[in-house]
Design a binder for these strands. Structure first.
Lengths: 221, 221
DNA sequence: TTACTATTCAATTAATCGCTTGAATAATAG
DNA sequence: CTATTATTCAAGCGATTAATTGAATAGTAA
């Protein structure tokens, strides 16, 4: 075969390694979670309802295409996204949201089931922050809050929301967020809060989106 | 199954449609070409050394994942990339280049075979444009030049380069470019020019990269 | 109408992929 | 040392995919 053709084929073969890595829904889910912070295999398996062996296998596909890195910490193996990968994931999500009409439909159908659920986006939240007082709630697990959160947000993991209710102000509006537009933690949080008489709304964006917009993100406690 | 899990699965299934589309080397090659401008099926089949039927099949995969759009023009069907797709492709290429070491190796091995081949990047070219006079040559087929080219470049398709040699200035440096870092048209052009006594170098970036940097791009003749 | 061209469809084959299962490995604790 | 825990490996099954081939469709021209 002519050497130019060979060269091209080799190059596109390499490019396709990235594509193959993100061609499986389960691997996308794993990547999405990893972009919130590093995780062990067991941890990822629990969140995705995959078996441990299957999770490990998917993680190795991601590792072989260089989208994640792994580090052994004692008895555990911790995985984290490689640099640039989360930006790439966001860019892929953006194309999907803009081009695939089914995504909007699936989201609407899901949210219709949750009556009274109000979602706001980044712009609307920024306006409210300036105009009136709002409490921003990060309802993800505490490790994810520590790894990075919207500046000014308070960590109230969904699991502890029930216990923390009394500490929240009833007169202020509450904005809850989690991992992004397709994460349901904030959906459940807002439902619970509204049932209990608070005025809560859901922020669509996650920390990654917030950061990508150039908005302030903090980490640690 | 619990409705939250169902929702997540449906969403990631949709996201993976984009991933599946870019998981095949041949489809990536097709996308890369399409990002230079619209094409007919036959046209694409010729450039990729695929059969017509196979090309058509791949294009339909791309269409079903909404990455390309199609339009019937008389006897031909013309395909073009959907909005945002070329940006996404660039973002994927960037991850691949930065994460997959093999790509650099393949490129180096290929260019080693072409002795005396000098490549420069955008920054180096900009400096030379300011300091000394250079002639910028777009060696892609004329339709691609018309669809968009680096401002100030002259269209000299590789196929006609042999005939146009006399019209090129021997004392000025010549910078040839084509579709991007992995396109070989400019490699062949620079080889020919250097053999004939010109001082020619290859620009790595293509028009897409140029545009993505915010640098001036023109279209038409 | 008929002939011709560009593209798509349909059926087939070989290769690859996702997931499961059970065994193997590696680090730690007693 | 043995037992325990987290992860990976290896084999196997069914489903999906890429590429080939030949037939079918759609638009154009005589």
């Amino acid at each position: 075969m002519n050497p130019n053709r060979r060269f091209k084929d080799e190059i596109y073969d390499q490019f396709s390694r990235i594509g193959k890595a993100v061609s499986s829904p389960k691997r996308l889910e794993l990547l999405d979670i990893l972009c919130q912070g590093e995780r062990t295999v067991e941890n990822l398996a629990n969140e995705t309802s995959l078996t441990i062996a299957n999770t490990s296998q998917h993680l190795q596909v991601l590792k072989n295409s260089r989208l994640v890195e792994q580090e052994k910490k004692g008895l555990y193996v911790v995985y984290r996204p490689a640099p640039m990968v989360c930006e790439f994931f966001l860019s892929m999500r953006k194309v999907a949201e803009n081009r695939i009409a089914e995504i909007e439909q699936i989201k609407n159908r899901f949210l219709e089931g949750k009556k009274g659920m109000e979602s706001i986006d980044r712009d609307a939240l920024i306006k409210r922050i300036q105009k009136e007082e709002v409490t921003i709630l990060d309802v993800r697990p505490p490790e994810e809050f520590r790894a990075g959160h919207i500046k000014g947000a308070v960590s109230v993991p969904l699991k502890e929301l029930g216990l923390m209710l009394t500490k929240l102000p009833k007169n202020k509006e509450i904005v809850a967020y989690c991992r992004g537009p397709y994460c349901v933690l904030s959906v459940e949080a807002v439902q619970l809060l509204n049932e209990k008489g608070y005025h809560a709304v859901r922020l669509e964006e996650g920390v990654q989106d917030w950061r990508a917009m150039g908005l302030p993100v903090a980490s640690g406690e």
